[in-house]
Design a protein around this nucleic acid. Structure first.
Length: 808
RNA sequence: GGGCGAGUGGCGGAAUUGGUAUACGCGUUUGACUUAAAAUCAAAUUCCCAAAAGGAUUGAGGGUUCGAGUCCCUCCUUGCCCACCA
């Protein structure tokens, strides 16, 4: 008997697949395409179980679709630019390019073990000039449309990584760098931005179009943070005006003071002589405060009076202007009208500074911002606040001191990085002509791959005259290249379009081909990308839709977030905890099929959970049991035995086809596997009673089992398929169909309840009538015991399920 | 503080969406095979009672219903995301 030896069998089939090219996608095929990919991995050099958890099930989906007749495209590339490569270079003296390419090579070797059905012809790595030249091209297109711009701005600076960060890359309550966890500081620098805010409304509204987890949609909604309100001007003695943004113009009569941020441009003008010292001191201390300290001070608000007053345009009364750091320069106008009666923060501040508090909405407790009837608001008194809101805004607009305004939390995407290992920004600075974009036909601007890292914290590009010194594309005179590189999220914002036409050296991609294959039908990856990557990809897709002929404007039709694999101890896997599971070792001990299967069996895919050593032993045992069945079948003499009634096997197989098909469609892998395990258990029972025979029913069972399991355990099933005499791969075989007529059983067991408690069971024909079922139920010995001497008040019959009797 | 989700055996988890709770797997126990062990096969395994009969049981409490893990209210625990956003 042949033994199940995955260590030998798996590489064998991987080689066969690679040589026969069965997973190569025919891009010209016109029938129904299906594009399914996992999120682009970063080549850290080591494939961990998290990767397996992402790639294995995604591959299973791709294989399933392929078998159901779809023309599937699935591949994998590498997100190859980024900081870790530079850190490795500094720590170990390896060139980032060498380190990265070496990692990709070893990851590809590890990946081979997975047995995924990738079409490697469509792969890419983002550090390849043939890829990043199109990043540069995109930059130029954005620049041309006014969507890429350079400006001096207060930006997030990570002191450890020595670079600026996008808003999205500053995380947590302490505002730390998402990469290294260092608290971020604010710095004023000239930086490149993409005007993603131009797309804010579409990014928000189009979430309706996509089949994504609700959670991710809500996160994006909150991140974009659209709020409708008004800009209102408060006039100043200084002949200027102070504009505020508010979502509640209806509360303007309750605006008893104003607050501006310490960085507000009018601070100097508004500060009176006698307040100068106080203000200067406060501004200095506010600047010194880290974000963390600002947040800690959330409850006890601080601030100083400027000495100036503004006129409330509604009451025409002067109100004091204060400076406080609870007002942020980065949101709205950096100035607010404070309504302490109806805003908790204003209330806290007013209480601390003994400022007047005036209630203007009835029923709204203090401090409470709700809806109610207006009060203390002149002619608006008595009307509902929601109506007053529009009326007051309209009236103020009529006076020319207010306008409707929609504000967003979303800021423009800061894309420049003072780092080396990234796409060079295709801009030069000419002494004569100033800032000039590199001409399209001069792309790519090649990143030198042999650089020296100094400890100055500056990009090594600055010290490369051969890179920096160039000619102006306009006048041909001496010019200097931009040494900042692009955020690596640029790389991942459109790579899924390039997969489709990755060898195109004439243009970013053939638009017609991409329109045929994209958007991605199913995108699978971790929820940690709910905002950053997915928002940028949506933005870039919309831009390419508007300016490069894409027929779609959302990149990912369906999104699935897999859960996180934890260590066996239920904790996050980490080297320091010593609970890291190495997939290579698991493959060595159990085989890739067992590992893939276990990851899909351990629980709901979107939930993740702890890795369990016994669990993988269980899926391996399951494969062994199938293997044994198969070997015994092969060793059985090929004599037909017509005397056996094996309809039960056929019915069980059909039932399993139905269950597995429906479960894989909803990514319920664990229950699909459970159904196959049940089938195998049934076959063992059958074997115990009647022995395995070379009958059509047994062949059908083994053949179907191989097909149903093929997406999840591609190697063992291919072996079984071949052993059954097939010349072509199970992975391009036609997904089995079930016949409902064969599934319905003649007899069913019905539960019998008396007053809601289960008191008996009856076995009856499936199509038994209600009358008869109730009769049978009442005749059941145990049930009769409970009915004795009682009147049956109500009889309920649920076909196929139960009979419920209610007695007095 | 705000938003979303989750609590089912010793453990991971099922449950036709309001219809026989605990499928499937792990673990454990017993038996077969073996000189023995491992592996394999078979049986048992929610809890209480020695067993049967019976009773209890889906975080806690209440409600709707013939019937609730599932729906409604209150509370507890826990995970994730956002957080002075005007």
């Amino acid at each position: 008997m042949k033994r199940y030896n995955p260590t030998e069998l798996e590489p064998k089939w991987q080689k066969v697949w690679s040589e026969s090219g069965i997973y190569k996608t025919d891009m010209g095929r016109v029938d129904e395409k299906h594009y399914v990919i996992p999120m682009l991995p970063y080549p850290s050099g080591d494939l961990h179980v998290g990767h397996w958890y992402n790639f294995g099930p995604t591959d299973a989906v791709a294989r399933f679709r392929r078998m159901t007749g779809k023309n599937v495209l699935t591949t994998l590339g590498f997100d190859a630019f980024g900081l870790p490569a530079e850190n490795a270079a500094i720590a170990r003296g390896i060139q980032p390019a060498v380190w990265t390419r070496g990692n990709i090579k070893s990851m590809k070797e590890q990946l081979a073990q997975l047995g995924a059905s990738y079409d490697w012809d469509h792969s890419l790595m983002t550090c390849d000039p043939e890829y990043y030249r199109w990043n540069q091209w995109l930059f130029l297109k954005l620049y041309e449309k006014g969507l890429a711009y350079r400006k001096k701005a207060l930006v997030n600076w990570c002191p450890k990584d020595q670079t600026v960060l996008a808003n999205e890359q500053v995380v947590g309550i302490n505002n730390v760098c998402e990469r290294c966890g260092t608290p971020v500081i604010q710095k004023e620098l000239e930086q490149w931005f993409f005007k993603i805010t131009d797309y804010a409304d579409r990014l928000l509204d189009d979430l309706e179009k996509v089949d994504w987890p609700e959670k991710v949609k809500v996160m994006q909604e909150n991140w974009i943070g659209r709020s409708r309100g008004a800009l209102i001007d408060f006039s100043l003695e200084q002949k200027e005006k102070l504009t505020v943004f508010t979502t509640r113009p209806d509360t303007i009569y309750g605006a008893t003071y104003m607050v501006i941020a310490p960085e507000h441009p009018l601070v100097d003008k508004l500060t009176t002589e006698e307040q100068k010292a106080d203000v200067a001191q406060y501004a200095a201390s506010a600047e010194r405060k880290t974000e963390l300290e600002r947040k800690e001070g959330e409850k006890d608000k601080t601030g100083v009076f400027t000495g100036s007053y503004a006129i409330n345009p509604a009451t025409k009364k002067p109100i004091p202007i204060w400076i406080a750091d609870y007002v942020l320069m980065s949101y709205g106008t950096g100035a607010i009208m404070a309504v302490p009666a109806h805003d908790e923060r204003d209330f806290d501040f007013a209480t601390a500074k003994s400022l007047p508090i005036l209630q203007v909405i009835e029923g709204g407790g203090l401090p409470y911002s709700g809806e109610g009837k207006m009060m203390n608001s002149g002619k608006y008194d008595g009307s509902p606040s929601s109506e007053a809101r529009e009326q007051i805004e309209a009236d103020l607009a009529g006076d020319g001191v207010a306008e409707e305004k929609t504000n967003y939390r979303l800021r423009d995407w800061l894309i420049s990085r003072q780092r080396y290992w990234g796409t060079p920004i295709p801009i030069v600075y000419c002494e004569e002509c100033g800032m000039q974009p590199v001409l399209e036909d001069q792309l790519p601007v090649i990143l030198p791959e042999d650089v020296e890292f100094e400890l100055t914290g500056q990009s090594p590009l600055i010290h490369r005259p051969d890179f920096v010194n160039t000619k102006c594309p306009q006048c041909g005179g001496d010019a200097r290249r931009e040494t900042d590189t692009m955020d690596t999220f640029m790389d991942s914002s459109w790579y899924f379009l390039r997969y489709i036409d990755n060898k195109n050296d004439k243009e970013i991609f053939d638009t017609e081909l991409v329109n045929r294959w994209a958007p991605v039908d199913h995108y699978i990856g971790g929820v940690e990308h709910a905002i950053l990557h997915l928002l940028y990809a949506r933005f870039m897709t919309k831009f390419l839709h508007d300016h490069h002929g894409l027929s779609f404007d959302e990149p990912f039709r369906k999104l699935t977030n897999q859960g996180i694999i934890l260590g066996p101890d239920g904790q996050k896997m980490s080297k320091s905890r010593g609970n890291v599971i190495n997939p290579d070792e698991q493959v060595k001990s159990y085989g890739a099929d067992s590992l893939r299967l276990y990851m899909m069996f351990m629980g709901p895919y979107e939930q993740g959970g702890p890795y369990n050593m016994g669990g993988i032993a269980g899926t391996r045992r399951f494969l062994d049991r199938i293997w044994t069945l198969m070997q015994e079948y092969l060793e059985t003499p090929a004599e037909p035995r017509a005397d056996l009634d094996e309809a039960a096997i056929t019915a069980a197989v059909h039932r399993t086809i139905k269950k597995v098909t429906k479960d894989i469609e909803k990514l319920s892998f664990n229950t699909a596997i459970a159904a196959m395990m049940s089938l195998v258990n049934e076959l063992y029972k059958f074997k115990d009673e009647k022995k395995i025979s070379r009958t059509p029913a047994w062949r059908f069972a083994l053949e179907t089992l191989a097909q149903l399991l093929a997406p999840m355990a591609p190697h063992i099933t291919e072996e079984i398929w071949a052993d059954l005499g097939h010349e072509t791969s199970v992975h391009i075989s036609r997904w089995p169909q079930w016949d409902d007529a064969l599934i319905t059983e003649e007899m069913t067991t019905l539960g019998v309840q008396v007053n809601g408690k289960l008191r008996g069971e009856i076995v009856a024909a499936s199509d038994i009538s209600e009358q008869e079922a109730v009769k049978m139920a009442k005749e059941d010995e145990n049930v009769a015991k409970y009915l004795e001497g009682k009147t049956v008040k109500k009889e309920i019959y649920v076909p196929g399920r139960l009979v419920s009797l209610v007695i007095q």
